[in-house]
Design a protein around this nucleic acid. Sequence first.
DNA 1: GCAAAAGTGTTGAGAATACACCCATGC
DNA 2: GCATGGGTGTATTCTCAACACTTTTGC
Lengths: 257, 257
Amino acid sequence: MDSLEEVNDFVKNGHQQYLPHISLDSVIFGYHDQHLKILLLKWKGMNGWGLPGGFIQRREPMSQAANRILQERTGLDQVFLQQFHIFGDSPYRLQEQSPQEFTKKYGHVVEDSWLFERTLGIGYFALVDYSKVSVQTDFFTDDHQWWDVLEIPTLLFDHNEVVQKALATLRLQIYHQPIGYNLLPEKFTLNEIHSLYETILGKELDIRNFAKKLVSLGIVKKLDERRAIGPHRSPYLYQFMKEAYENALKQGLVHTY
Amino acid sequence: MDSLEEVNDFVKNGHQQYLPHISLDSVIFGYHDQHLKILLLKWKGMNGWGLPGGFIQRREPMSQAANRILQERTGLDQVFLQQFHIFGDSPYRLQEQSPQEFTKKYGHVVEDSWLFERTLGIGYFALVDYSKVSVQTDFFTDDHQWWDVLEIPTLLFDHNEVVQKALATLRLQIYHQPIGYNLLPEKFTLNEIHSLYETILGKELDIRNFAKKLVSLGIVKKLDERRAIGPHRSPYLYQFMKEAYENALKQGLVHTY
DNA sequence: GCAAAAGTGTTGAGAATACACCCATGC
DNA sequence: GCATGGGTGTATTCTCAACACTTTTGC
């Protein structure tokens, strides 16, 4: 959606293609340099940041819409993607938006649009390999940036609430499901997965006990390879045991870290 | 909504009052006689059972809508009520409904209605005191019944999936949150809460270990009272420690049963 | 006294935690 | 040789799980 014509059509007639009153909002987590980050977009004209999102096509399964939106935005496919909450209570989710606001923001006159009506937001979160993402912006957004989860600014709409809920869900989920397959490269060092878990949980984990745990759960295995890392001892590489991992995803784990 | 006029108006003009494309579906759990039960309604004309549900008013917070619908249906207020999933993938959630079908079901001619459009379902589950519920039916339903969760029949729409997901969520949640405050009378015996947990989890729990656990978590306390139960030894009564309970609700627990 | 349900404690195994020193590498 | 990060094992504590007999009560 780049040309003015396309945008005009979307604003005026989008409800013929998309379900009105429902948006999908994606919290895309990436992990880089021992920091857990979230992809934010800068809204044109509003001078503020918000989550990427989109709408569900009239005859498209909801989860397919979530995948499509992620794909369009990041180029990624087949990543971990999961709904976690619906947002329909905050003041922003109650009121209609005004046409004047819209015109002011985008310098674009519109009398009426399905976009101004009340919209509930379905929150999805994704875990992606930071390095593989190539972000597309569109007419409504003109910049993107990865933000450390500890330094998220005040966001547009109710998106701070959405991010907080996503984080809380991720932290809870890590007790029941293995996490990391989509956040780490295929082969990784113990330190990398260790600080990933520390980062997500926001607390320190003894690395020796942590390694024992992961291996005893059977979801990672130590390889016979090492990675050269400059002036220091070369760390061993680890890899997820795909089968055990998938199994744990489905069955759920009960344990602590 | 009883008179034909009201129903007609709802079918034709309901979208002026309610958000289209979105319904709320409630899985109402009650506990009675050592069985976990779900409240189902019998759909008029369709000869099948389904979950109670409703729609969100245009300017009503979503969670308030969920409470209102529960209140209208059961007379209950201030119970545990929580969203757990949105359903938008099953074949039933993809297609529009046909006016002919509607007419056949309700013996009622309608050309077109917002009710025929594709509708996503927001699943809520409630935990209620079985004995306090007094069920209201409406134009679309003509009977109600509590069904044992182990004996749920084939339901209308995608409601079997909704029920299964609600159960799975409840079972997962019981590892992180205390449950029972809304399902049991104020004072209860150890046996009662014990079989509640056994029922929800669908497995046996050693009653001695179970009691130790609950007390050590600090969410119930043993009272100095007993209940007379006929020809047998009188059991002690227990009570939830409201503060610790609320705390555990908010903070989450990590432990096993 | 007997049938039915309630009450109660201990032990062993396994898991979680805490903790510190040596190794490899490049400069 | 030294600075930096990586690697490894053991002892202690705690939690979980398993298990059976005695007490109360009304008839």
